[in-house]
Simulated assay, not measured.
Amino acid sequence: MTTETRTGVETGTEDLPVLESPRKVAPKDARELSKVFFDKLAVLEEGTHEYQYVRNTLIEMNMSLVRFAAGRFRGARGDEMADIVQVGTIGLIKAIDRFDLSRDVEFTSLAVPYIVGEIKRFFRDTSWAVHVPRRLQEARVALAKATDELSSRLGRAPSVAELATLMNLSEDEVIEARIASNGYNSMSLDAAVGPVGEDGDAALADFIGVEDPGLELFENFHTLAPLLDELDDRSRRILHLRFVEELTQSEIGKELGISQMHVSRLLARNLERLRKGMLDQA
């Protein structure tokens, strides 16, 4: 461990050792030095330069804990080790911010569970091919366990009713959990699913229907309808004359007894209101 004496203008941290490279401090030395830095952190005002210096040094000094915890997950999935270390660092920072010296507990005893918990949460929240609510992610695990238990006990695949009884859920909730399980893994549209004549394997995309162009139009109309209802009668009349009867702005002005410029302003204002409303609901 290499340190040097702090000199110069007093900063409130002049009694601390200056570490040339906090990340290179050996774990044993880091444990002892962390106590000194935590003592100082407790008396410094949060948000000050001195507070940030001490806090950042604690983070750098204890990165070996993150690397140790992250090593347990090496190869657990396809994620880069750097990503896992980055997530684990969030757990380390939380541990530093919540560590209480008065509880007489070793910092490592608090930090490692925080780091591991953050990494596990990362795996849990990013392991699904599509976003699925947390309750359904948990229901999937319970469903798998219940299915295995009943299959062993009954010697056959359990029914939805039997699973619902064991899991203390309704049958609809069991079905919902089964459907949600489909989001755990994804498959490429280019994945081969079977032979197609002499042209080679068929891709999954060959069995999926094309997108209906009318679907997006229907969704747009469905979103637009309540927004139109919020407009006053004159605004809806102007939009009808412009986009249904296809009158010009001058013709609309004559129809309503207002100027073409006024029509233009009303059209622009209402179209912007509708556009914003649709974007907000996208």
Rank of each mutant, 00 (worst) to 15 (best):
L19I: 07
L19T: 12
E20A: 13
S21K: 11
R23Q: 08
R23G: 08
V25L: 06
P27M: 10
E32I: 14
E32N: 09
K35V: 09
F37W: 14
F38E: 08
D39L: 07
A42E: 10
T48A: 02
H49R: 15
H49I: 13
E50T: 06
E50I: 07
Y51S: 00
Q52I: 10
V54R: 00
R55P: 00
I59N: 02
E60Y: 00
M61H: 03
M63D: 01
S64M: 02
L65D: 00
R67S: 07
F68W: 12
A69H: 00
A69D: 04
A69Q: 07
A70F: 15
F73L: 13
R74C: 00
E80W: 01
E80G: 00
M81A: 11
I84T: 03
V85D: 09
V87H: 05
G88D: 03
I90M: 09
L92I: 09
A95K: 08
D97M: 05
D97G: 02
R98N: 15
S102A: 12
R103T: 08
R103H: 08
V105G: 10
T108C: 11
T108L: 05
L110T: 12
A111L: 02
V112F: 11
P113V: 12
P113K: 08
I115L: 08
I119G: 04
R121P: 00
R121L: 04
R121F: 03
R121A: 06
F122A: 02
F122N: 01
F123G: 01
F123Y: 15
D125V: 15
T126P: 04
S127G: 15
S127T: 14
W128I: 12
A129V: 10
V130C: 05
V130E: 01
H131F: 06
R134G: 03
R135C: 01
R135E: 08
Q137G: 06
E138G: 03
